[in-house]
Design a protein around this nucleic acid. Structure first.
Length: 262
DNA sequence: AGTCGCCTGGTA
DNA sequence: TACCAGGCGACT
């Protein structure tokens, strides 16, 4: 979003070329009709959604899901995955592509877009949250740690990699019961959430499989991961082999010595 | 809380 | 060839 803001803020849409209308809401026609001549006032983020604030009181919203990419060029051999091309009046082009087609693009009014996209159901931004508010959300909440961290309606932004990293840093098993944690433990969990997300942001994301920046630049945080993807490798804290299992329906990595189920 | 479906490509 | 993949909504 930071890169998109730098590159797109102030620009005016000239044309839109839709290659795969199925990922666009409400329709390809709406994109073509309503974007021409419209200026990008700002690009912001809400949870995992990219939000273009437009001069016609509409919002262009993109969710990358698994393999979506927003880039200033078409990558070699990936032409067939381009979903939509935005051309600005200065002739620069912005491409949204998606191999698996899970991503979504919406164009709605400022009144409608939150409900249509589901943004209105998102919890608070964890990096802008106080510890006491965080504790209030999770203290005595029934469920497993990882399931609850992944729930975007409680706090937004935590995905599979960061959930594992957060659990490891807190010394808690991903399947620890949240309702059994003390306020002190929840407070420590909060510190881990902010630390892990903060480091991920500082290192410009995790480029372990699909993520790349808008210019093809790779993130660096994959070099700093403590447990995710480290199955069979020695725990950085105790040297015991990291275990991989399935929790919350997702591949889950943890150290069975350092991370307690209580 | 678990499973499936959505899609396709990379890897064991 | 089977299985897995940083997401998420529907369904059980």
């Amino acid at each position: 979003v930071r890169e998109l803001r730098e590159g797109a803020k102030g620009k005016k849409f000239w044309s839109v070329d839709v290659k795969n209308a199925k990922l666009l809401m409400p329709s390809a026609d709406v994109f073509a009709d309503l974007l021409k001549g419209v200026r990008v006032l700002d690009v912001v983020r809400r949870g995992k959604f990219i939000v273009f604030v437009l001069s016609n009181h509409m919002r262009l919203v993109i969710h990358l899901r698994m393999t979506g990419r927003v880039m200033w060029h078409v990558e070699k051999g990936r032409d067939k995955y381009v979903v939509v091309t935005f051309t600005f009046s200065d002739a620069t082009k912005l491409y949204f592509s998606d191999v698996r087609k899970f991503g979504r693009v919406w164009l709605y009014t400022e009144k409608e877009f939150e409900k249509v996209t589901g943004i209105h159901r998102l919890g608070p931004e964890p990096m802008e949250l106080s510890k006491s508010d965080f504790v209030e959300i999770f203290y005595k909440r029934k469920g497993m740690l990882k399931n609850l961290l992944l729930r975007q309606d409680l706090i937004t932004g935590v995905g599979n990699i960061y959930a594992d990293e957060i659990a490891f840093r807190t010394g808690l098993h991903p399947q620890a019961r949240m309702e059994k944690l003390s306020k002190t433990q929840i407070g420590k969990l909060f510190e881990s959430v902010q630390y892990c997300l903060g480091e991920g942001i500082r290192h410009c994301g995790v480029s372990v499989s699909d993520f790349v920046g808008t210019k093809g630049n790779l993130g660096q945080h994959q070099h700093y991961l403590q447990v995710y993807g480290r199955k069979g490798l020695p725990c950085y804290r105790c040297k015991t082999a990291i275990v991989k299992t399935v929790a919350a329906g997702r591949g889950t990595f943890y150290c069975h010595i350092c991370q307690s189920i209580n």
